[in-house]
Amino acid sequence: MLALIRYSVPQDRTEEFTARAYEIVDAFAGQPGFVRGRVSRSVDEPELWALVSEWDGAGFYRRALSAARMVMYPLMTLMVNEPSAFEDVDRP
Rank of each mutant, 00 (worst) to 15 (best):
M1T: 14
M1P: 03
M1G: 05
L2Q: 13
L2M: 13
A3M: 08
A3S: 09
A3D: 03
L4C: 11
L4S: 11
L4Q: 04
I5C: 04
I5R: 06
I5V: 02
I5S: 01
R6I: 03
R6E: 07
Y7R: 02
Y7E: 08
Y7I: 10
Y7C: 01
Y7Q: 00
S8E: 05
V9Y: 12
P10F: 10
P10T: 14
P10D: 06
D12N: 09
R13K: 14
T14E: 13
T14A: 07
E15C: 03
E15W: 06
E15T: 10
F17T: 10
F17L: 08
T18D: 01
T18F: 10
Y22K: 10
E23L: 00
I24L: 04
I24R: 04
V25R: 10
V25L: 09
V25E: 09
D26F: 12
A27T: 12
A27C: 15
A29S: 14
G30V: 02
Q31V: 05
Q31Y: 05
Q31F: 06
P32K: 14
G33H: 10
G33M: 08
F34L: 03
R36L: 15
G37E: 00
G37C: 01
G37Q: 01
R38V: 12
R41L: 01
S42K: 10
V43S: 06
V43F: 01
D44A: 13
E45C: 05
E45S: 08
E47I: 15
E47P: 07
L48Y: 05
A50K: 08
A50T: 07
L51E: 09
V52G: 00
V52D: 00
S53L: 01
W55V: 08
G57I: 04
A58E: 14
A58Y: 13
F60P: 01
Y61D: 11
Y61R: 02
Y61M: 14
Y61K: 12
R62N: 09
A64Y: 04
A64S: 02
R69H: 04
V71F: 14
V71E: 09
M72K: 11
P74M: 02
P74Q: 03
P74Y: 15
P74K: 07
L75P: 01
M76G: 02
M76T: 11
T77C: 04
T77R: 13
L78M: 13
L78V: 05
L78I: 09
L78A: 11
M79V: 03
V80D: 15
V80G: 08
V80M: 01
V80W: 15
N81E: 12
N81T: 11
N81L: 11
E82I: 01
E82R: 05
P83G: 07
S84F: 15
A85M: 10
F86L: 09
F86K: 05
F86M: 14
F86E: 09
F86P: 03
E87N: 06
E87Q: 07
E87D: 15
E87L: 12
V89Q: 05
V89D: 08
V89R: 05
V89E: 11
D90W: 00
D90E: 05
D90F: 09
D90T: 15
R91Q: 15
R91D: 08
